[in-house]
């Protein structure tokens, strides 16, 4: 299992991570950050740690913690 942590203050709620996740582990929630952006939330149960959300995030708001090495980059 892997875990995704979203820096609520860096997130601008663009939704690119939500679109990138093939497992529906991310969503734009109801919470606002201090800049009034509705931010992305990690609601995952079966995150594979693929890092797609990290890759597409334009604000480096996402940190992915993986339990084991996942080969995604060739």
């Amino acid at each position: 299992m892997a875990k995704v942590v979203i820096d609520q203050e860096r997130c601008k709620g663009c939704g690119l991570c939500v679109a990138a996740c093939n497992f529906g582990n991310l969503r734009i929630g109801e919470n606002f950050n201090s800049k009034s952006y509705k931010v992305s939330e990690f609601v995952g149960e079966d995150c594979k740690g693929c890092g797609f959300c990290y890759m597409v995030c334009p604000d480096t708001a996402i940190t992915v913690f993986r339990d084991e090495k996942v080969e995604v980059e060739k």
């Binding site: 601008k12 990290y54 995030c57 334009p58 604000d59 480096t60 940190t63 993986r66 339990d67």
Partner: peptide
């Protein structure tokens, strides 16, 4: 505990990007 982390690269400062939501500059910077 987790042993592999994907996170903000060291060559970036902690400063938050000012780009608009969804702008690709941030991805290219990273």
């Amino acid at each position: 505990m987790s042993n592999q982390i994907l996170e903000r690269p060291k060559s970036l400062t902690q400063k938050q990007f000012h780009y608009c939501p969804g702008c690709h500059h941030g991805i290219i910077h990273r």
